[in-house]
């Protein structure tokens, strides 16, 4: 369908051989630029440790081996006291709990913003919109002390609550916009039939809001899984490091490691995301595009 649309108004684009050649060269150039660093790192990581330095500038290794991956696990645990399985577990716990918390609260709050009346509604909403533009670092120092006073620094709760405070406006913004797009007749019909506001939300709005919730899940998943500075400062205990924090520790440590081990460590964090992306790529692209349009 998409191609038909292009053919309709692309006449002079199709006629021009210069345009055809330029687009091929430019797009190929960018694809190589994007793929090369990742492929190169992957290629270094699957060589046997002895051949990492020899002939290392060809993408295809001549001696395959997964020894670097074993070294990466061992190096992380012995030298830096962080372990990859533990990092993934920590990230999974933090991400899933933050996303669940943010979405379950946003579902209700966004309903209040879209269908109910309360004082200072639009002012509060404007503060939320403004806070989306604020960089996370602005809150860093006071948050650090608030979490100390609450006695939850260096626990999962510290980072989960910090993420919730920082990301809840995104959930509310997207869901409010979506609730308000649902035709007024539907909710009116519900109230005429005697549905309470709670039933209206649960039975009419939520089933329709599934795509909006999927968008939120994707955006929040990426924001929390990849987040670095809060996770680094609020959870300094090596046993609860998340993936980016542990990886940064490995990658910037003063212990010199073999480039194969280094590359394997980086690839361990990239490959799972690559697999998830390969499966859900349409949702990721659609979700991030929709999320951007909220601004």
């Amino acid at each position: 369908m998409e191609t038909n649309k292009i053919n309709n108004y692309g006449a002079s684009f199709k006629r021009s051989p210069i345009f055809y050649i330029i687009t091929r060269i430019v797009v190929l150039f960018f694809i190589i630029i994007i793929i090369f660093p990742l492929l190169y790192t992957l290629s270094l990581s699957v060589r046997s440790p002895e051949t990492v330095y020899s002939a290392r500038y060809f993408l295809i290794p001549y001696e395959f081996s997964f020894a670097n991956y074993i070294d990466a696990f061992v190096n992380a645990e012995q030298k830096l006291k962080v372990s990859f399985p533990r990092m993934f577990l920590n990230s999974a716990v933090v991400t899933s709990l933050s996303v669940t918390l943010i979405i379950s609260m946003s579902i209700f709050a966004a309903f209040a913003f879209s269908h109910l009346r309360f004082p200072l509604k639009e002012s509060l909403y404007n503060v939320m919109i403004a806070s989306v533009a604020m960089p996370a670092q602005v809150l860093l120092i006071p948050l650090f002390y608030i979490l100390i006073y609450l006695g939850i620094i260096n626990t999962y709760q510290a980072v989960i609550l910090a993420y919730a405070g920082f990301l809840i406006p995104i959930g509310i913004l997207i869901l409010r916009m979506f609730y308000e797009q649902i035709p007024y007749e539907l909710t009116e019909a519900g109230t005429v039939d005697g549905a309470s506001d709670f039933q209206l939300l649960m039975k009419v709005l939520l089933p329709l809001a599934k795509p909006a919730i999927a968008t939120c899940v994707i955006l929040l998943f990426l924001d929390t899984w990849n987040e670095f500075i809060y996770a680094m400062i609020f959870m300094q205990d090596p046993t609860i490091h998340t993936v980016p924090v542990g990886l940064a520790k490995i990658g910037t440590s003063r212990y010199q490691v073999n480039i194969g081990t280094y590359s394997a460590s980086v690839m361990i964090t990239i490959i799972p995301v690559m697999i998830i992306f390969a499966v859900f790529q349409r949702w990721f692209i659609a979700g991030m595009t929709m999320g951007a349009l909220k601004h």
Binding site: M105, V127, M128, S131, M134, V138, L139, P142, L143, I146, L161, A162, A164, G165, F166, I168, P169
Partner: peptide
């Protein structure tokens, strides 16, 4: 949550 962990720290 928004006030405690976003507006007040800000």
């Amino acid at each position: 949550i928004f006030l405690t962990f976003n507006v007040i720290p800000g």
